[in-house]
């Protein structure tokens, strides 16, 4: 079936491709970490009961969730240097775009997780004399995190796939590196099959992990 194919092209270009993989991983890990942290802050702000704050966050979340990611990437790539007058590297402008965009999604997941803890649990914690903060820390968050870990991971897998969009600003992520090799050596089929295989292995293992966590932590 693969006669006429030359999969050796992948081995010959492995160091170059691995550089791309490295950039994709860096971007994903940093964007997931930053996105979850900002998302947590947004979620707590939205649940804080302080109306102007909650409205501001709601506006931010709804606005970003209505935008295509690629547009947000373009904005940060073109607008941020103009607005701030300083040039930042393509990598950081993309990273900021991802963090701000993903935070909108993560905040909704975290908010749902916190809201999913029954009101009676908070009453029980308070009745024992725990303060608001202690009730949050020892009773609400441990339950909320169990509820939201699978969804957070699923969102992060989507985010890993979305990182391939950075090719639009010329960053050399995994897909872009493969594309460069593919057109230079005129071997697009081999390279794109390879990219698909790697994404399949990574994303499938991750979603298996999600399922295991879901079974383990479902209360």
């Amino acid at each position: 079936m693969f006669s006429g194919f030359d999969f050796d092209v992948i081995w010959r270009n492995m160091p170059f491709l691995l550089n791309g993989v490295w950039l994709t991983l860096q971007l994903t890990i940093m964007a997931v970490t930053g996105g979850i942290l900002l998302g947590l802050i947004l979620a707590v702000a939205r649940l804080s009961g302080i109306k102007p704050l909650a409205w501001g966050v709601a506006a931010y979340v709804n606005f970003l969730r209505s935008m295509p990611l690629i547009l947000v990437i373009f904005w940060f790539y073109t607008l941020v240097p103009k607005l701030t007058g300083t040039s930042i590297s393509g990598f950081y402008s993309v990273l900021i775009a991802f963090i701000m965009f993903e935070a909108a999604y993560y905040s909704e997941i975290i908010r749902a997780g916190i809201s999913s803890v029954k009101r009676g649990q908070i009453s029980a914690a308070m009745a024992l004399g725990l303060t608001n903060l202690q009730a949050m820390r020892y009773v609400v968050l441990p339950q909320a995190i169990r509820n939201m870990i699978p969804v957070l991971l699923t969102q992060s897998i989507v985010m890993l796939q979305d990182t391939s969009l950075v090719y639009v600003v010329g960053l050399r992520d995994f897909l872009t590196s493969a594309e460069i090799v593919a057109s230079r050596d005129n071997r697009p089929t081999e390279l794109y099959l390879f990219v698909a295989l790697i994404f399949l292995v990574v994303c499938f293992s991750a979603s298996r992990l999600v399922n295991r966590l879901r079974r383990k932590y479902t209360l």
Binding site: A124, A127, V139, Q143
Partner: peptide, 13 residues
Amino acid sequence: IGMVFQNFELFPH
């Protein structure tokens, strides 16, 4: 003051 609830409200985790 101890309190006991209709739905127990034990911490499930």
